[in-house]
């Protein structure tokens, strides 16, 4: 593909990551995909470093809610158009007061990904002034919906009344499948 001078070998990048940044660990998912776990304060330098090395395409910025560990994992997926290698860069932030720094200056589109993450997880991104504007949801007044402690079924039952059926079709289906014992009428 495109010949570029900063297209250095994968091994080199991985080893220099470990040398340059303390506390960074790498993990191989498959030959063309690596996961890099960084401490929060190193994340943005790591991302900048990787961008310079040719991993310039931000596929997605998203978040995972590890409720048991009380952490949010922020995931930045970087792709190299030259070598076809994907780096999954991730970092953990505290779940109680989730604040992180924006990467808007590195990837302009991140502005919208960050708004997305803020809307669905409640993670604030310092430096992104639009971060708290609603994007997809409208007049939302509950917990950020993608958090693990938010129950969509309960919310749906509370706000959106369901049709009432005379027959409990799901129960009957369970009887037919043999999950529970019972009689089917009609």
């Amino acid at each position: 593909m495109m010949s570029s001078t900063n297209n250095i070998g994968l091994e080199e990048i991985l080893s220099s990551l470990n040398q340059l940044f303390e506390g960074v660990s790498t993990e191989k998912v498959d030959p063309r995909q690596y996961k890099i776990i960084t401490p929060p304060e190193k994340t943005i330098p790591v991302l900048e470093f990787l961008k310079e090395k040719g991993y310039s395409h931000l596929s997605i910025l998203t978040c995972i809610d590890w409720i048991a560990e009380k952490k949010f994992e922020l995931v930045y997926i970087l792709f190299n158009w030259g070598t076809g290698v994907t780096f999954v860069v991730s970092t953990y932030v505290n779940r109680d007061n989730p604040i992180f720094y924006t990467v808007k200056h590195i990837w302009p589109t991140a502005e919208y990904y960050e708004r997305d993450v803020h809307e669905f997880f409640g993670v604030k991104f310092e430096g992104n002034e639009n971060c708290e504007k609603p994007l997809i949801l409208e007049l939302w007044n509950d917990l950020p919906p993608l958090r693990k402690d938010f129950d969509p079924l309960e919310y749906s039952k509370k706000h959106y009344p369901d049709r009432e059926y005379q027959k409990d079709a799901i129960h009957e289906a369970r009887i037919i499948r043999g999950d529970v014992r019972g009689e089917i009428d009609g």
């Binding site: 669905f120 994007l135 997809i136 949801l137 409208e138 919906p145 693990k148 938010f150 969509p152």
Partner: peptide, 13 residues
């Protein structure tokens, strides 16, 4: 955006 939001990512969990 958002008119077609169904919360897939939540439903899939």
């Amino acid at each position: 955006p958002g008119f077609l939001h169904r919360g897939f990512e939540k439903l899939m969990e």
